[in-house]
Design a protein around this nucleic acid. Sequence first.
DNA 1: GACCAGGCACATC
DNA 2: GATGTGCATGGT
Length: 219
Amino acid sequence: MNALLKIYELLYKRYGSQYWWPGESCFEIILGAILTQNTNWQNVEKAIANLKAANLMDQHRLYGLLPEQLAELIRPAGYYNMKAVRIKNFLNWLFETHDGSLESAGQMDTHSLRAALLGIKGIGPETADSITLYAFNKPVFVVDTYTARVMTRHRHIEPGAGYEALQELFTSALPADYKLFNEYHALLVRVGKDFCRKTARCPGCPLEELPHDTDMQDY
DNA sequence: GACCAGGCACATC
DNA sequence: GATGTGCATGGT
């Protein structure tokens, strides 16, 4: 068994299923992916609650809303003016290319869908991959700050590794299984929140039990 | 009051 | 290609 699978096994044994993404529908997951950009999930939940209370958790109703109105509703999530535009950009794409149908968008092949999402202004690699994996159940591995920090701090990749290098680390070692990618990323976020925060070291971290690449500098 | 949180686009060198 | 900056709220 390779190192990446061992990490997964250890984390799953420790934490069990994380039941990601936290969201009740494909559309809610997409909005959450945009709203959580550089933002605490607790703040995202407030914004999502506002949208649900206004009965706007629906692409057709949201499409008709002015950006300023949307911005006010998602205000608790921070960067609200930018995120309102980004959500609008996504909706414009969805209605212009798929007549507003998420089911139709979900019929695209994995690579085409990811590329199309990356073409939307305001949707970068992590957001595109989060949507592709968690909203559409397609096997792309999501890399985020926790993924990078956990893997560098435990010396499974060199500091400064970019998004593509981190993604390749996982996809080259794992079967392309969307359920595995779903759980694995969620577990990395979990262990990152528990032990690998930005300013703290990682005492008691379950990943310390595993061998790492001793040639790499500590981080 | 400082620091942090499940990024991204854009300017500048 | 690498680096710096603006965007903003709410919890610790």
